[in-house]
Amino acid sequence: MADISPAPSNPPQTGTKPVIVARGVRKHYGSIHAVDGVDLEVQEGELFGLIGHNGAGKSTMFKMMLGLIPVTGGEIRIDGAPVGGAGGDFRTVRRKIGYLPENVVLYDNLTGLETLQFFAKLKGVPARDNVTLLERVGLIHAAKRRVREYSKGMRQRLGFAQALLGKPRILFLDEPTTGLDPEAIRGFYAILRQLKSEGVTMVITSHILAEIQERVDRLAIMAAGKVQATGTVQALREQMDLPLWFSVRVDPADFEAVRAALGHLPVGAIEARDDHVAVQCQRDTKMAVITALATLDGKVRDLTVREPSLEDVFFGFSD
């Protein structure tokens, strides 16, 4: 996917107008509670991540937000209008939405351009933007080739172009980077950044936590049909209160000096490795550790702090 959009110079504005609101949403299949009392609020222009194990209820939640399946209880509103209701509202809401399903299935016998033409008709969007969209996702060279000949990544991009038809205000992206190579993933997120700067609200799921941890504004961790935690990655880290690790590069001869300097602090493990000392501590001891290490002046050659990753946070909440 060509990275045609420069990163916006001004930080994207996330509004305070809730666009997607879920209140006490439940989905029961007999005795199975796929979704069991979920409250969510996604603000306008927000890039919101939804993560969880398989079977945590993400996909069910997605389908309910799209109105593909009805809720057993609770309510979901999109732009103020209840989801799932028939009548005029239903079409108005749907026209504001773009959806990229997980492992998108398109029609093998159509070309890329024809695929967009078909979905554009259904969305009631003029066909003139189709070529621009194919350019945007880097598929213009394959516009007249049948989807049958497309690779997995190309299908995914075409699915993404389909989701962008009619300039939707809200995007639902289910595992959108599946099958994309690293360069295409960068291009994909560049497009998301641009959309965000235009005020588009996006909900995204991904298994690759490292990929979304630096890109989403906020996220919700789902497990067992419930939202276990919601917030920015940093807020969740703090909430989970996971230890962080210092890596202190010193000459092996100075290992003991490091130990001594930190001896009076409530740090966790202090382990001597090949060329550094690994120190584990809680967040509230972080500054004290740095101050103590500063007293070793000259002996510390380098210092890195490893924050708990989203993966650590995720397992903390979902286990």
Binding site: A86, R91, R94, R95, P101, L106
Partner: peptide, 14 residues
């Protein structure tokens, strides 16, 4: 069965 029904039904169509 192919998995294309969800996408179709997410369109403004009944």
């Amino acid at each position: 069965e192919r998995g294309s029904l969800d996408l179709l039904l997410s369109m403004p169509i009944t």
